[in-house]
Amino acid sequence: MAHYRSLGTIPPKRHTQFRYDGETLAYEELMGEEGFSSDSSLLYHRHIPSAVTDSSVWEVPDAATVPNHPLKPRHLKLHELFKDGAWQDTDVVTGRRLVLGNGDVRISYVVAGRTSPLYRNGLGDECVYVESGSARVETVFGVLNARAGDYVVIPRATTHRWIPKAGTPLRAYCIEANSHIAPPKRYLSRYGQLLEHAPYCERDLHGPTELVTATGSDVEVLVKHRGPGGQVVGTRFLQAEHPFDVIGWDGCLYPYTFNIADFEPITGRVHQPPPIHQVFEGDNFVICNFVPRKVDYHPLSIPVPYYHSNVDSDEVMFYCGGDYEARKGSGIGQGSISLHPGGHSHGPQPGAYERSIGADFFDELAVMVDTFRPMELGEGGQACDDGTYAWTWAGRRP
């Protein structure tokens, strides 16, 4: 995280006795990245945070993938995955359906209405984009209030739960890394401050503002972690005391929200490449967003993207608002994903190139993940593939 925060009550000196009520000793826990060599925070607990009374297998939602072979672009219709009111009995953690994944990042989709179990991801950071609805996200660091358009960035091993607003479906696009997720390095000073050319700043990042306290013994926490051969597995812990017992914390590692409406688009006289849309990065992947914006103003500009080959990456685009000019005529709409794999040239649909000439504004909203290893199809992706998108540029099927 780019800047220091504190919440609750903490002692004046770290790693010293802290008697939070004048008598009872608090238990200090360091949550830190990269083996004491990167960002960290110190949390002060009423109980021993490592005390567990049981450990059993948690069968995580289907994490198997199949290769995109033979190679072709795909159109995945995510809104077909949750129908007929099933969201009312679904939660954000256990109800996720894996759409795409590789060894670096997994993308799932869920429509939820029920409070999730307590959960932490021991594989990597999570970046959950809220397509619609709202939720209270309770964490060991405190409460986040998530609304439509928010990215909710949750550091690895942060215990939390999702509580959707009653009566309203929460649509969430879940990006799970096997690494950390952070602002791009080119946006940061050598000390971690967001620079003047960055499309957002610290004022746009919203961390917890109130602690959450709960009590109880033998409290269940679901943990996702690495298994044999690097596969995704789960464990069900019973913690001796409720993990929401934090008195205070401080540091530079904590969950936060960032709303896509606070991203300030960068524009130019001619079409600008996707890195200008970047919002976060992880190991071997980046996250970008395309927001409503003025477009190219050279007198001979063509505002939609030129045709391009993803030589080193797969491009995954989630369409979550507006009217995406380059994809008109393809069947893609809100709730769609397009997968354009490395090794295949792609670009505007037939007619879009010409229609865009003279446009001065695009009203579109999309979240893009570019990966540097091939994406494979998960159970959810296979279930909602339209099967025809690859042939739309030619206008005929094989």
Rank of each mutant, 00 (worst) to 15 (best):
S338I: 15
T371N: 00
A326L: 11
G329H: 07
E325D: 08
S345Q: 12
K328Q: 15
P374N: 02
Q349G: 00
G342D: 04
G347H: 14
S330G: 13
E379R: 09
G347C: 10
K328G: 00
E354R: 13
H346L: 03
Q382A: 14
P341C: 09
E354P: 09
Q349K: 11
P374W: 02
G321P: 07
L365M: 10
I332R: 06
G381H: 07
P341N: 07
R355A: 15
E376W: 03
F362Q: 03
C320F: 12
K328I: 09
E325R: 14
A359V: 06
I332Y: 00
D370S: 12
L377R: 03
A352C: 15
S356G: 15
F362S: 02
G381V: 08
R327D: 04
Y324V: 13
E325K: 13
G347V: 11
E379C: 12
S356H: 06
S356K: 08
E364R: 01
E364K: 01
T371C: 01
M368E: 12
G380R: 12
L377C: 08
G329S: 04
S330M: 10
Q334P: 11
Y324M: 10
E376G: 03
L365E: 05
E376R: 12
L377T: 08
E376Q: 13
M368S: 08
Q334F: 01
G380Q: 11
L377Q: 05
G322K: 10
G322E: 07
A383I: 06
V367D: 01
V367G: 00
F362Y: 15
F362D: 02
C320K: 05
A383Y: 03
M375P: 06
F372I: 00
V369E: 02
V311Y: 04
Y324P: 03
G333E: 06
D312H: 06
D370C: 10
D323N: 13
R373S: 14
I337A: 00
Q334K: 10
H344P: 00
R327F: 15
I332P: 00
D360P: 00
L339R: 02
G335A: 07
E315T: 14
G380V: 08
E315C: 11
C320D: 00
